[in-house]
C-alpha cells in the first residue's frame, strides 16, 4: 500500500507540474497582465517600472520558475477583484459547491440504485420500461432548461421552495452547512435535484446493466443452490459486484460535477466556486482563474486516488497486498 501511494504521489507531482506549465503559458504568457493592471493612458516609463516590479521583463523560463516558487511557498497571488489571497477566496466558496455536489451524489445513489435494481430484476416489464424512459429524460433534458422548469414549478407556481441563494447556514463541527437550518435545507433542495437528475439516470443505467450482467452468472445460481434468500443474493452478492462500476463512474463524475456545477450555480445563484469562476472570467481576475484550475486538477488527482482505494476495498482481486 505504501509503495502504491508513493507511486501515485509521484504521478501527481508530474501532472501538477504539467498543469502549472500549461496554465502559465496560457494565462500569463499569451495575455498581457499589464493591460489589465495599468490604466490605458500609462506612460512607457510606468509600464517598464510595473513590468520590472512584477518580474515581467525577465525571460519566460525565469518567470515560470518564479511562478512555481510562489506556488510552492503557498502564494497563489491576490485576487484583483476581492483584493485578498486567491486561495482564501476559493476555500471560502468551495464548501457551498461541495455541499451541493455531495447532496446530489447521495441523492443519485439513494434514488438510482433502488430503481436500477428494480428495473434490472424485471427486464422488459412495465416497471423496467417506465424507469428506463424516465432515465432517458434525465439524461437528455438540458441542465439550464431543467433548472428553470424546477424554479417555475416549485418556486413560482407552487411557491414551496426558494429559488436562489444558499439561505441561512450554521456551523456544525466547524463546517458551515445549509443542512443545519431549515431555511438552508430548503434552499439546497432545488439546485441539488437539478444537479442530481442526470446522475440518477446514470446510476439507474449502471445498476440495471450490472444486475442483468451479474444475475446469470454461476455464483448467483450457486448462491440460490445454497439456500440464500433472494433478498440477500440481490443486496449482498449482486450489489457488491455492481458497486465496482458505480464507484468508478461516480468518482469521475464527482470531479466533473464540482468543476461543472457552473450551470446549476448560475441558475440558482448558488455561491459556490462555479459561480466564482464565471464571475472571475467576466472580471478577468486571472489569479483566481489560475488558482481555480490548479485547485480543480489537484482535486481530480485526490479523487482518483480515493476511488482506487475504495476500489481495492470492494474488489479483493485488485487489493494491493502488504509486502
Amino acid at each position: 500500500m505504501t509503495a502504491f501511494i508513493i507511486r501515485r504521489a509521484l504521478q501527481a507531482v508530474v501532472v501538477l507540474f504539467l498543469t502549472a506549465l500549461i496554465v502559465f503559458l496560457g494565462v500569463y504568457a499569451i495575455g498581457d497582465p499589464l493591460e489589465i493592471l495599468l490604466p490605458g493612458d500609462a506612460t512607457e516609463a510606468e509600464r517598464a517600472q510595473v513590468a520590472a516590479s512584477l518580474g515581467l521583463d525577465q525571460p519566460l523560463p525565469v518567470q515560470f520558475i518564479g511562478f512555481l516558487t510562489d506556488i510552492l511557498s503557498g502564494d497563489f497571488g491576490r485576487s484583483f477583484v476581492y483584493n485578498r489571497p486567491t486561495i482564501d477566496v476559493i476555500f471560502e466558496r468551495f464548501p457551498a459547491t461541495l455541499e451541493l455536489v455531495v447532496t446530489a451524489l447521495v441523492l443519485s445513489l439513494l434514488i438510482g440504485i433502488p430503481l436500477g435494481l428494480w428495473a434490472g430484476m424485471k427486464p422488459r416489464s412495465a416497471v423496467d420500461e417506465t424507469i428506463m424512459t424516465g432515465s432517458i429524460l434525465g439524461f437528455s433534458l438540458p441542465n439550464f432548461w431543467q433548472g428553470m422548469m424546477l424554479i417555475m414549478i416549485f418556486s413560482v407556481w407552487l411557491g414551496w421552495l426558494p429559488s436562489t441563494g444558499r439561505g441561512d447556514t450554521a456551523t456544525v463541527l466547524s463546517i458551515r452547512t445549509s443542512f443545519a437550518t431549515w431555511d438552508g435545507f430548503t434552499h439546497l433542495i432545488l439546485p441539488a435535484i437539478n444537479l442530481a437528475l442526470a446522475q440518477i439516470a446514470l446510476v439507474i443505467r449502471l445498476t440495471r446493466t450490472g444486475v442483468q450482467e451479474t444475475t446469470p452468472l454461476d455464483f448467483v445460481r450457486f448462491a440460490r443452490a445454497r439456500g440464500l434468500t433472494e433478498r440477500r443474493i440481490l443486496l449482498v452478492h449482486v450489489m457488491k459486484n455492481i458497486l465496482i462500476p458505480i464507484v468508478t463512474v461516480l468518482g469521475i463524475e464527482f470531479g466533473s460535477l464540482i468543476a461543472f456545477a457552473v450551470v446549476t450555480e448560475t441558475i440558482f445563484a448558488w455561491p459556490g466556486i462555479g459561480k466564482l469562476i464565471i464571475d472571475s472570467i467576466n472580471a478577468l481576475d486571472r489569479p483566481v482563474i489560475v488558482t481555480y484550475i490548479l485547485f480543480i486538477v489537484t482535486m481530480f488527482i485526490v479523487i482518483n486516488l480515493l476511488v482506487d482505494i475504495l476500489y481495492s476495498l470492494i474488489d479483493p482481486r485488485i487489493r494491493v497486498r502488504q509486502p
Binding site: L217, D218, F219, R221, F222, A223, R224, A225, R226, G227, L228, V236, H237, K240, N241, I244, I314, D315, P316, R317
Partner: peptide, 21 residues
C-alpha cells in the same frame, strides 16, 4: 431445502463462488 437437505455442486469451480466475498 436447498443447501440444507439437498445440495448441489457445479461444474466450473472458477465461477461458483462470488469473487468479491
Amino acid at each position: 431445502l436447498r443447501g440444507d437437505r439437498i445440495a448441489m455442486i457445479f461444474q466450473d469451480p472458477m465461477m461458483t463462488l462470488n469473487p468479491v466475498l
